[in-house]
Design a protein around this nucleic acid. Structure first.
Lengths: 337, 337
DNA sequence: CTTGGCACTCGGGAACACCGAGTGCTAGTC
DNA sequence: GACTAGCACTCGGTGTTCCCGAGTGCCAAG
């Protein structure tokens, strides 16, 4: 049904439309890409492609525009991820290398990605539950309050102020800290609940209320941060583009963590580092936008996801290349620290 | 020059224009506000107001629109801050009360303010330099690395991984931690540099290289975070409004920390908690927008600023009321924790 | 000083014609 | 059988014209 030339025509249509943002006609197509056939032939092919639903015309007597299905075919079979230039790679490297802590890594990453793709970049903070405990700290603030600080192997720090049920002197706090660390150091965060389950019972009776209070806050911290923070950058890049769904909806989605999370998508369990591309109506919300995302993190320990959001009419090969490259570099940085 | 009725006319023009977004004519004015004079009289007053530069007409045969100067007069003399409704106050209170840490307070605040005003809200993180040290923690990660965690009285936590120049066993780290805390606990952050200046000299010779490394990172942390993080929310509210300067510019400014900082403005040293209103061309960048901002923080210890950014044509009394109320509640929350 | 009246201005919308890119179809050509 | 050239047709976009009416400034009367 779709011979090679028809596919070539589709590819040409996508490429032209992406670069010009105007419906592309048979004549322009025939001459700009050396298809070696006449416009009339191209027209026939276009009619076939339209029949199959890969392209459509906004109105009679206008050129053709790819449909979501057309983009899908293009991404799956007609294009290949475009690697970044050496200069771009160097830029990424130096930009990310300057990061001082996890927060900084994430901030720099999201900005970098936005600038590189000229789209909106979205980065999810590394997931706590897949991290391991590097240290638990209890800092006495006064005799009824301590601050709980949880440090993970990804450099993330969570803190909570805890109101104690009774006055506790510092030496007891220090002891509890040692107990907690002995119990949790190096363990995966997801294992924490079971590890601390019988902790109160193993301690002297008088310590139990205090420990119970601390543990409840600790567990709460783990649970609350389970659905992770997401940040975005590059909203200014939306100003030019036109979204079928309206700019407002896009901006609203960007500020809604939950929606953004859904858009980034779950890591497919088998190949988490593969690029996910969701085109237009394939998206749960925001039917008018496309998303290119991937997991990132050190080794096979996928931590979170990052990606780019833009109009359906985007340069997929370039965007995919940028997302993939940035994900790799960030993973590298995180592994090193 | 400007008698009471002319001022009343100006006030009416501002109010009508803000609510309708259309140039307001003499006839509509005369009937909607009971000015008890005829349209012709109003026209004379309008001519005078235009002469003085308080209003202008987009083109001949159109109604009048306030100028920046007109808004300024309105804000300064013709309006009063509109207090929030009881329901709104309750909403603020309950919404902010649920915050678990400083990050959460800031995030909730910015969202709340955006929702309340239907504009873009901007909140600066509490300034480190005005805070005091509550605790310094050194956490051994391995024998060549420690994590420095700095906890302030505002609940803020800064962390840095430090590469040590030599292998240091945990007991020495613990000792250094005690020394640092003895030296810094409770001190203002701005005093830290001088306080630690002679610290290496007071320690045994063999500790000095390690201490020097740690201190350099500590000082670096203080300096780097001096110009503070700023977050915004409510960008979706920009979608409806039309900015003379273009939506793109506004979005770009929002993502540029430095610009945003300038827009929020420095705390005027005398009355930091006063509302600052910058209208249109009074702004350093973004001439087409207005900003309502104020300092917040506990007591006379002003910590940072928050505010709202919107089109020049905004409802100043309501916006000012919201900004003031939110600032007060946040200050209260911060003082309590 | 205020007011009613009046001539004037000009932006914006409706109606209209025109252009041209692009199409589908058909007949001819390799 | 596939490709191509030619041609009639469609229709969105643009430019033109025209008209309306909101709004103004000015003037003379109250």
């Amino acid at each position: 049904m779709l011979d090679d030339r028809k596919l070539a025509v589709l590819r040409a249509i996508v490429e032209d439309y992406v670069s010009t943002n105007e419906p592309v006609g048979s004549k322009a197509l025939a001459e700009r890409h050396n298809l070696k056939v006449s416009p009339a032939t191209v027209r026939n092919d276009m009619a076939a492609l339209e029949e199959e639903g890969y392209i459509t015309q906004p109105h009679t007597s206008a050129g053709r525009v790819p449909t979501d299905k057309g983009y899908r075919l293009f991404v799956d079979r007609l294009s290949q991820v475009k690697p970044l230039s050496a200069a771009e790679r160097r830029a990424i490297e130096t930009f990310l290398a300057g990061a001082v802590d996890l927060d900084d890594v994430v901030t720099r990453t999201v900005r970098l990605l936005a600038q590189l793709t000229r789209q909106v970049a979205v980065v999810q903070y590394p997931t706590l539950t897949r991290s391991t405990v590097r240290h638990v700290e209890l800092v006495p603030l006064n005799d009824r309050r301590v601050m709980l600080v949880l440090i993970t192997n990804t450099g993330r720090v969570e803190q909570r102020v805890i109101e104690l049920p009774e006055v506790v002197e510092d030496t007891r706090i220090a002891h509890l800290r040692a107990v907690l660390n002995a119990c949790l150091d190096g363990c995966g965060l997801s294992n924490v609940p079971e590890l601390v389950a019988d902790l109160p019972e193993r301690l002297p009776l008088e310590d139990r209320p205090v420990v119970a209070t601390i543990l409840s806050v600790l567990l709460e911290t783990l649970v609350e941060r389970h659905d992770e923070k997401i940040v975005f950058a590059g909203a200014a890049n939306l100003a030019g583009a036109d979204f079928s769904t309206g700019l407002r909806d896009v901006l609203e989605a960007l500020e809604e963590q939950v929606v953004l999370m859904r858009l980034l998508g779950e890591t497919s369990t088998d190949t988490p580092s593969a690029l996910t591309v969701r085109i237009g109506s394939e998206n749960p919300y925001l039917r008018g936008t496309s998303i290119v995302a991937t997991g990132y993190g050190s080794g096979d320990n996928q931590l979170a996801r990052l990606g780019v959001l833009g109009p359906t009419r985007m340069d997929y090969p370039v965007t995919m290349g940028a997302v993939r490259a940035v994900a790799r570099y960030v993973s590298q940085i995180l592994a090193a620290s």
